[in-house]
Amino acid sequence: DVEPGKFYKGVVTRIEKYGASINLNEQVRGLLRPRDMISLRLENLNVGDEIIVQAIDVRPEKREIDFKYIP
């Protein structure tokens, strides 16, 4: 289970102007929005990149997770 405040290694699977889709595994994925990137710009991400993200909002009833990137 993903817990708010914990850090996870994820893989960038899609990049859109509203954010990047991050997969932690086949069943768990979430969104990294541009506003939640401290020192990383969306255009510097590539599909397949592995990054460390922090879960900031977990809504299991909607199967949604928001991530934050902290270098």
Rank of each mutant, 00 (worst) to 15 (best):
V47F: 02
V58G: 04
V12A: 00
Q27I: 12
G48L: 02
E26R: 12
P71F: 07
D36A: 06
Q54P: 00
E50D: 08
I52C: 14
K9M: 10
I56C: 08
E16V: 08
R14T: 07
I38W: 06
V28P: 01
Y8K: 00
S21A: 11
R35A: 12
K17R: 13
G19R: 05
A20L: 08
E61W: 08
I51H: 00
V58S: 05
I52W: 15
I38D: 10
K68S: 11
L42P: 03
G48N: 05
P71R: 09
L32H: 02
V12N: 00
R35H: 10
L31C: 14
I51G: 01
G30T: 02
D66R: 15
L24T: 02
G10H: 00
I51D: 00
N25G: 11
S39C: 15
I15V: 10
D1E: 12
S21G: 05
S21L: 15
R29S: 15
N44M: 14
R41F: 09
G5T: 03
N44V: 07
I65N: 02
I38R: 08
R59M: 04
A55H: 01
L32E: 01
M37N: 07
R33Y: 04
P60D: 08
P60F: 09
V58D: 03
I38A: 10
V12E: 00
P71D: 08
T13M: 09
D36T: 04
R35N: 08
V47R: 03
E26V: 10
R59H: 08
I70C: 10
G5P: 04
K68Q: 10
K6F: 07
L32N: 01
I56W: 08
V53G: 00
Q27C: 13
L24V: 10
L42N: 02
I51F: 04
N23T: 15
E43H: 10
G30V: 08
N46D: 07
I52A: 02
S39M: 12
N46G: 08
N25P: 03
K6T: 06
I22Y: 01
I15Q: 01
I22E: 01
V12Y: 12
E16G: 15
I70L: 10
R63F: 13
I56F: 10
Y8P: 00
R14S: 12
E16Q: 12
S39N: 14
D49L: 05
D57R: 15
L31W: 13
L31S: 03
K9D: 01
E61V: 08
R29G: 13
Y18I: 13
N23W: 14
L31F: 11
T13L: 05
D57E: 14
K68I: 08
P4S: 10
A20D: 02
V28F: 10
I70R: 06
V28K: 03
R33V: 04
G30P: 06
R59E: 04
P34D: 06
K17E: 12
G19Q: 05
R63I: 07
L31M: 13
I15R: 01
E61D: 14
V58H: 05
V53K: 00
L31E: 02
Y69H: 04
Y8G: 00
F67N: 03
I22M: 01
L32G: 01
E61G: 13
E61Y: 08
D49V: 06
E50S: 12
R59V: 05
V47L: 10
E50P: 09
N23Q: 15
R29D: 06
P4D: 05
L24M: 04
L31V: 09
D1R: 13
I65F: 07
R63A: 12
D66W: 14
A20W: 07
D49S: 04
E3F: 12
E64N: 06
I56K: 11
R14A: 13
V28E: 04
F7S: 06
R41T: 14
I22R: 01
I70A: 10
E16M: 15
E3Y: 12
G48F: 02
G5K: 04
G10I: 06
V58W: 09
G48W: 04
P71S: 11
V53R: 00
S21F: 15
P4C: 13
Y18K: 11
N44H: 14
D36W: 09
R59F: 06
Q54L: 15
I51R: 00
E43P: 04
D49A: 06
D49Y: 05
V12R: 00
E61K: 09
M37K: 03
K68W: 05
V28N: 05
I15M: 04
L45N: 00
G30A: 04
K17I: 13
G30Q: 02
L40H: 06
Y69F: 11
G19M: 05
L45H: 01
G10W: 08
P4N: 10
R33I: 06
R41E: 08
R33E: 02
Y8W: 02
Y8S: 00
L31Y: 07
E50W: 15
E43F: 08
F67V: 04
Y8T: 00
E26S: 14
E64H: 10
E50F: 14
G19H: 06
G5V: 04
Q54H: 04
L32F: 04
I15K: 02
D49P: 00
D1M: 14
A55P: 03
G19K: 04
P71M: 10
L32M: 05
S21T: 15
V53E: 00
R41G: 10
I38E: 10
E61L: 09
R41Q: 11
L45D: 00
Q54K: 08
D1L: 14
D66E: 09
Y8I: 01
L40V: 07
E50V: 15
P60Y: 11
E61T: 09
E50Q: 11
G10A: 10
Y8R: 00
N46P: 00
G10T: 02
E61M: 08
R59A: 05
K62L: 14
V11H: 05
P34C: 10
N23L: 14
E64T: 10
K9A: 08
E16H: 15
E26H: 13
K9C: 15
L45Q: 00
V12M: 00
K68D: 03
D1I: 14
I56L: 12
V28G: 04
Q54F: 13
G5N: 07
L31R: 05
D1K: 13
I70N: 09
I56Q: 05
V47S: 01
K9W: 12
V58P: 04
I51M: 03
Q54A: 05
P34L: 10
I65W: 11
V2K: 03
N25D: 09
T13W: 06
L42A: 04
I38C: 13
Q27T: 14
L32D: 01
N44F: 10
R41K: 14
N25I: 06
D36P: 04
A55N: 00
A20P: 02
V2H: 04
V53C: 06
R33K: 08
L31G: 01
V2M: 06
D49R: 02
I65C: 07
I65V: 10
V11Q: 05
N25E: 05
D1Y: 14
E26G: 13
T13P: 00
R59L: 05
I65A: 06
I38P: 06
R29P: 03
D1C: 15
A55E: 02
D1W: 15
V11I: 14
N44R: 06
E26K: 12
I38G: 15
M37E: 03
I56A: 06
I15C: 06
N46E: 12
D66I: 14
R14P: 00
V47A: 02
N44G: 08
S21C: 15
N44T: 09
D36S: 05
S39G: 15
V11M: 09
I15L: 07
G48K: 00
E26Y: 11
Y18M: 11
G10L: 09
Y69G: 02
K6W: 06
G30C: 12
L24F: 05
F67W: 07
